[in-house]
Design a protein around this nucleic acid. Structure first.
Ligand SMILES: [Mn+2]
Ligand SMILES: [Mn+2]
Ligand SMILES: [Mn+2]
Ligand SMILES: [Mn+2]
Lengths: 159, 159
DNA sequence: TAATATTGTTAGCCAAGGCTAAACTGTTTG
DNA sequence: CAAACAGTTTAGCCTTGGCTAACAATATTA
């Protein structure tokens, strides 16, 4: 620390706000986020495949590419990975289907997604905004928070 | 679609739930999330550096590595990138400092983070859980939702 | 002050998730 | 039924964000 510290205004915290959390707790925050990032794309794919099967009767790679706004090549590579994870089954040039595990993941993800979306709407967020926010938030909401969101939404509807 | 469709239960949607959003809107959801992912780690670093400067007077690479639970090498590489983006200034083996742009980003990110954290606590989420959830959620909350969260928290406190 | 401990950097590796271009398969249609 | 079109796959590239191991610089302390 020199006298020419260019952030002088930050070095003497007159009003330091919340203190920093303990190192271990702080590290846990970031670690949990990194962890979520590893699985979230997988969940989005599986959830979308489930939705396409439910609403359209089939899930084609081209639909996924369009709905996600990524290239078909990207989808193709991801499908290979979903296959390796035994979440989907696929025959070349045919519709995708979900394995047991895939169906389970799709249901769980869809349920979580819906709770977050409905919560945001109950809060007063416009539908289009709520959909965008929910798509990202869903992967970072703990079970505890999820339960609270669900209760909140239900109470809102009983008023 | 063959007769041996293993997801038969999903192909005739008796209760199809919400319909799929229009393709363009759906694509926008995923695109917004991908976009957030590009900047969120940068924001976390800058925000943490600002916090360390405010609360500790200096921001060392080792502190960041400890608080984020990543290796020093990872931090070192990231600092180079923050330097290239002109968000931080650094001399070898010395504390980091934020540029003007860095300070601005730190403030914005911190403010957003706090609004989400305080909102979750106001909702009734336990502090430790709220901190973990906020760390991920903050990057996926629109300005619209953020404003609503802030209003909710204030009203909660006036009761 | 010399030895040791701490801190920071660099090099080289990996996986994930994007992309384009090119090849291949299946479907539709003149 | 052949040609054109649409859908799918593959190959090869890129960036991000992790990692470990080896090395360099600074700080501490015997
Ligand atoms: Mn989802
Ligand atoms: Mn999502
Ligand atoms: Mn933050
Ligand atoms: Mn964060």
């Amino acid at each position: 620390m020199t006298d020419s510290n260019p952030n002088a205004s930050l070095t003497a915290p007159s009003i330091p706000g919340d203190a920093l959390p303990p190192v271990e707790q702080h590290a846990q925050q970031y670690a949990t986020v990194r962890n979520a990032h590893e699985t979230e794309l997988i969940e989005d794919y599986v959830e979308l495949i489930g939705d396409l099967l439910a609403h359209r009767g089939e899930a084609r790679a081209a639909d996924i590419a369009n709905r996600m706004a990524v290239s078909q090549a990207t989808v193709s590579k991801m499908i290979r990975r979903l296959n390796e994870l035994e979440l989907v089954t696929s025959k070349p040039y045919r519709s995708l289907f979900l394995t047991e595990a895939g169906q389970k993941m799709a249901e769980t993800s869809r349920a979580r997604h819906d709770i977050v979306l409905h919560f945001l709407r109950a809060l007063g967020v416009r539908d289009a905004t709520a959909r965008i926010d929910a798509e990202g938030m869903e992967h970072h909401v703990s079970d505890e928070t999820l339960a609270i969101m669900q209760r909140f939404t239900e109470q809102q509807q009983n008023n």
